[in-house]
Amino acid sequence: MAKGKIVAGVLAPHPPHLVYAENPPQNEPKAECGWETLRWAYERLRSSLARIEYDVIIVQSAHWRTNSGTHFLGVPHFKGLSVDPVFPNLFRYTYDLKVDVPLAEAICQKAEAAGLATEMMRNKDYRIDYGAIVSCHMTNPSWDTPIVGISSVGSARYFNMDVLQAQMFKLGQATREAVEASGKRAVLLSSNSLSHRHFTKEPALVEDMSFEHINNHNQYLWDMKMIDLMKRGKSREMIDILTDFTEQASAETDSGALSWMMSAMNFPDYPAEVHGYGTVIGTGNAIVEWSQA
């Protein structure tokens, strides 16, 4: 069996607004328009990934939060309705997805061997979180590729970002080793926004883009700083300042997904492809691809 490989890693944020504005048949609410710069960025990502062959999408979600260690989806097939608890007016999505359980188990075992607390999620009634669904849908709307779903842990709040990152580096390494041993080609998704201070009000017509802008300039500057490091292939430097960024920009990198993905990809030293940046209800979101294909 040929050695498996991580063929790409993607910063793939999950505002439900993006799926809402796409109007796919799976989502019940319908929009007129909205957040095009981000949706076009996802289109560019999809064309880029169309040139690569891959067998599995591995997604770590900020919205599957488990404080008692890292959990992995461990049921081969999930079907159901996902309603966003925060934006139920925008996201009521019927999903039908397949899970690569053997690969999930392999990552889980390697992570456990590395000293992390882990658990397989075997409950068939479990409802997939909207974060993972949005990132996967926007990356691959056909859902023709199985996924591995990984939870995020609360260590940034329970301890601090440094503790979280130390754990995520181990999880990243475990992911890489398991993918290599599997012989499969994997795309990783870090499902999170950058700066993450929301507005707490929304306009009557949610997709009225005259209301959409960054929450505050401080966040914008931080987002640009991070994106600049991505573009220049300085992922180590980016990870080094992630603690400050997360705190100062209330960033959703407190989920650990970006740290996990950078570690799994061995901290790329080549420029990432920034497909686009835009705000959603005040938060900063970038779609960024590190290709290793």
Partner: peptide
């Protein structure tokens, strides 16, 4: 609905 806690899914539905 049938609810499953995101963290304590092993305890049951």
């Amino acid at each position: 609905w049938v609810h499953v806690d995101e963290q304590f899914h092993a305890v049951g539905s």
